[in-house]
């Protein structure tokens, strides 16, 4: 499909068109940028670096009802994800889209997760390339991504100044492009080539990197290495690095009684950095300290996941580095892994 252009003057009307779907876009809550459903196109805030909470929460909500139950009634009322309707996530960053394609492998592995997969099927991802890496701690290029990466996206938008270059990448993307056709014009000649040059420039501006070669194989050999004690010494055991990670996908399932005789089974994000995460009913905890938990976080992303799914479960978005209250830095830990003997 030929590339199009979306004039910045027409962004509002294009978004208005998309509000006939469940439209999710970056928006401000006070000064914090989060993804949320918008009904007023004016709420969309596209001039942003990256969101604090990744858009994974749209396809994998922090809390979701699986089914409801009632005392004396053997019927379980299941959640119907279909009711959420067609969803468009507009303006997400390439790393966060790539993260979804990585997590898809888990949710469609030994058990096909109907909630997640249905939502993925209903969702079209309209990405926004990073002309400048949003953060000093971005390292997407070390993991096979790019500030202009297309993996996982249905449409890629590139900010060309007074307009966006619109490139449909999948069938879903082409459909959405058709829906928006009244607001689009033909892209100027040579524009895709120009975007490629901009991509190379943006990649060149990524300041941090890690050579991941050999890390997945090496990690299991460092089980008792002293680096884990040092890397975790300052850890507070909070959930920032995992909850704000676009590829972390652990969840807990709990029954909650809402009113007398009524309740729901719900699942919610869980974090391997919480002490309670591996706590057994006996009181025994196989990961008793933050050392084992930190080792698990890194090993899961960089060893267990690639062993099973052939891809590292990290996209280099830098959120865990930027937002850690005690400056625990995954790149520093990985460098120590590389150097360890």
């Amino acid at each position: 499909m030929a590339a199009k252009k979306l004039s910045k003057e027409k962004v509002q009307e294009a978004l208005q068109e998309l509000t006939k779907f469940r439209l999710i876009a970056p928006a401000k809550s006070d000064e914090v940028v989060i993804f949320k459903q918008i009904t007023d196109p004016g709420e969309a805030f596209l001039d942003y670096g990256n969101s604090t909470v990744p858009p994974k929460k749209v396809v994998f909500p922090q809390t979701e009802t699986l089914f409801r139950f009632q005392r004396g009634n053997p019927e379980l009322r299941e959640k119907n994800v279909e009711e959420e309707g067609t969803t468009v996530i507009f303006g997400l960053r390439p790393c966060d889209a790539r993260a979804m394609s990585i997590v898809d492998r888990l949710f469609s592995w030994d058990f096909e997760d109907p909630y997640y997969l249905k939502r993925r099927e209903l969702t079209t991802l309209v990405g926004l390339a990073c002309n400048e890496p949003p953060s000093i701690n971005c390292f997407c290029t070390s993991l096979g991504g790019s500030p202009f990466g297309k993996e996982g996206l249905d449409i890629l938008l590139t900010d060309m100044g007074d307009h966006y270059l619109v490139q449909a990448l999948t069938e879903k993307g082409e459909k959405l492009q058709d829906i928006l056709s009244a607001h689009l014009e033909d892209a100027p000649a040579e524009e895709e080539k120009k975007a490629e040059e901009m991509a190379a420039q943006a990649e060149g501006k990524i300041a941090r990197s890690i050579n991941t070669e050999g890390i997945p194989e090496k990690l299991p050999t460092l089980w008792e290495h002293e680096l884990w004690k040092k890397a975790s010494a300052a850890c507070l055991g909070c959930g920032i690095c995992t909850f704000l990670c676009p590829t972390c996908h652990c969840f807990d399932i709990q029954d909650e009684v809402e009113e007398m005789g009524e309740g729901r089974r719900a699942r919610m994000w869980d974090s391997c950095m919480f002490s309670e995460y591996t706590l057994h009913a006996s009181g025994h905890n196989p990961r008793p300290t933050r050392r084992e938990r930190t080792r698990n976080r890194i090993s899961h992303k960089y060893s267990y996941y690639p062993k099973r799914f052939e891809v590292i479960a990290c996209v280099g978005c830098g959120r865990c580095i930027n937002l850690c209250p005690v400056n625990i830095d995954i790149l520093e830990i990985l460098e120590q892994v590389v150097d360890a003997s």
């Binding site: 909070c238 909850f243 994000w269 974090s271 919480f274």
Partner: peptide, 15 residues
């Protein structure tokens, strides 16, 4: 507005 964006990472408690 403030509480609705809390993700319950418990960093406030842990720190």
């Amino acid at each position: 507005e403030k509480f609705s964006r809390c993700i319950r990472c418990y960093s406030c408690r842990n720190v």
